[in-house]
C-alpha cells in the first residue's frame, strides 16, 4: 500500500499505519513525514490534562463531538501508562468515547507511554504531526493521568485544559508549583458532586495571584457525562485561541514548542547512537566497575559518549 498517497487522499487506514510505523521509529515513516512536513501547522492543538479519574476522556469525547457537529475534522491522541516491568499497557480511554467510534469526522488513537515520562507517549508529537498532515482541524491530546509535575503537554499544545474534580485536596494543593501553572483553562468536572464550588473558588483565588500573564484563565464547572458546561469550555477554547493569535503569543509559543521538539529528538538520537555503539556486555562491564567503586558514574557517563563526540554519522 502506498502510505504517502493514502495520507494525501484521506485514507484512514494509511493514517493508522503511518502512526504505527512512526511510533515504532521506522525510517520509511520518518521519510514520508519529512517529505510532507510542509503540510503541518494548520491544526489547532488542545491539551487535556489532569489527575487520573477526573473525567479527561469523557470531556475530550464531548468536546470532540461538539466540534464534529460544527463540521470540523478532529484527531484525538489518548495516552495511558505503559508498564515499566512488562512493556504492556491497558489503553482504556476509548471506553468513554464509544459514541465517537463511527463518526467520520473523528479519528482516535490510543498510545502507551512506552517509557516516556512527562505525561505524553513517546510517539505523541510525531502522531500530532501526522494527523496535522492528514488535515485535522483540531487535535486533542489527552495526557496520562498526571501527578504534580508532568507539564510536557504545555510544550506541545496551543491551549492546555487542566481538568480537576472536587475532593482532590485543599487549597494548598492548588498553590503548588507544576501542573497548576500550565492551565490556560481550568475545568472542575463532576460538578454535581459536593464541594465543586469550593474547588472552583480555590482555583479562582489561586489564579488571582498570577500577575505575570495578561491571560486570566477561566474556571469552568462541567458535568461532562451529562453534557453540562461543554459549550462553555468550547467558547473558552475559542476565546483563548483568539487571544493568543491576536497577541502574537501563538507564533512565539509554536516556535518554543519546535525548539523543545528539536532538542528532544536530538536527545533521542544521541541516546540511540550511544546504545548502538555499546554492546550489552560492555555496558554491564562498566556497571560492574562502578558497582565495585573502581570508577565513578560521572566519569563512566563521559566515557560512553566519547565515541560519538566526533559527530553522529547517519
Amino acid at each position: 500500500m502506498d502510505i504517502k498517497k493514502g495520507i494525501i487522499d484521506g485514507d484512514r487506514i494509511a493514517l493508522a499505519k503511518l502512526i504505527t510505523m512512526a511510533e515504532d521509529g521506522k525510517k520509511e515513516a520518518m521519510d514520508i513525514i519529512k517529505e510532507l512536513y510542509h503540510r503541518t501547522g494548520n491544526a489547532y492543538l488542545i491539551g487535556i490534562t489532569g489527575p487520573p479519574g477526573v473525567g479527561k476522556s469523557t470531556l475530550t469525547a464531548k468536546l470532540a463531538r461538539a466540534y464534529s457537529g460544527l463540521g470540523k475534522k478532529i484527531g484525538i491522541i489518548a495516552c495511558d501508562p505503559t508498564s515499566p516491568y512488562t512493556g504492556g499497557a491497558i489503553l482504556g480511554d476509548r471506553i468513554r468515547m464509544q459514541e465517537l467510534f463511527t463518526d467520520p469526522n473523528i479519528f482516535i488513537r490510543s498510545m502507551g507511554s512506552r517509557g516516556h515520562l512527562g505525561g505524553l507517549s513517546r510517539g505523541t508529537r510525531v502522531a500530532v504531526r501526522i494527523m496535522d498532515i492528514f488535515g485535522m482541524d483540531y487535535i486533542f491530546i489527552e495526557t496520562v493521568g498526571v501527578g504534580q509535575s508532568e507539564v510536557e503537554i504545555a510544550d506541545t499544545a496551543d491551549t492546555t485544559i487542566m481538568v480537576l474534580a472536587p475532593g482532590l485536596g485543599d487549597d494548598i494543593q492548588a498553590m503548588k508549583a507544576g501542573i497548576m501553572e500550565i492551565g490556560d483553562i481550568f475545568v472542575v468536572n463532576k460538578a454535581d458532586r459536593e464541594g465543586a464550588e469550593k474547588t472552583a473558588r480555590e482555583i479562582d483565588t489561586m489564579l488571582d495571584f498570577n500577575e505575570k500573564s495578561t491571560w486570566r484563565p477561566k474556571v469552568i464547572m462541567t458535568v461532562a457525562q451529562d453534557n453540562k458546561g461543554i459549550n462553555d469550555v468550547l467558547h473558552a477554547i475559542e476565546e483563548h485561541m483568539k487571544y493568543i493569535k491576536d497577541s502574537g503569543i501563538f507564533a512565539s509559543k509554536r516556535k518554543e514548542h519546535i525548539k523543545e521538539e528539536i532538542l528532544e529528538l536530538a536527545t533521542q538520537n544521541i541516546m540511540s547512537e550511544i546504545m548502538t555503539g555499546l554492546s550489552k556486555e560492555e555496558l554491564l562491564g562498566i556497571v560492574d566497575k562502578v558497582a565495585k567503586r573502581e570508577i565513578d558514574p560521572y566519569s563512566a557517563s563521559i566515557d560512553i559518549i566519547k565515541p560519538i563526540k566526533g559527530g553522529i554519522q547517519k
Binding site: 504492556g88 471506553i95 467510534f101
Partner: peptide, 20 residues
C-alpha cells in the same frame, strides 16, 4: 493477562456494534 504479557491492550468497553 495480555497486558502482563507485554501487549498494548485497547479496551473499548461493553455493548459494541461490529461497526464500532
Amino acid at each position: 493477562a495480555f497486558r502482563d504479557a507485554g501487549m498494548e491492550v485497547i479496551y473499548t468497553g461493553l455493548r459494541q456494534t461490529p461497526e464500532q
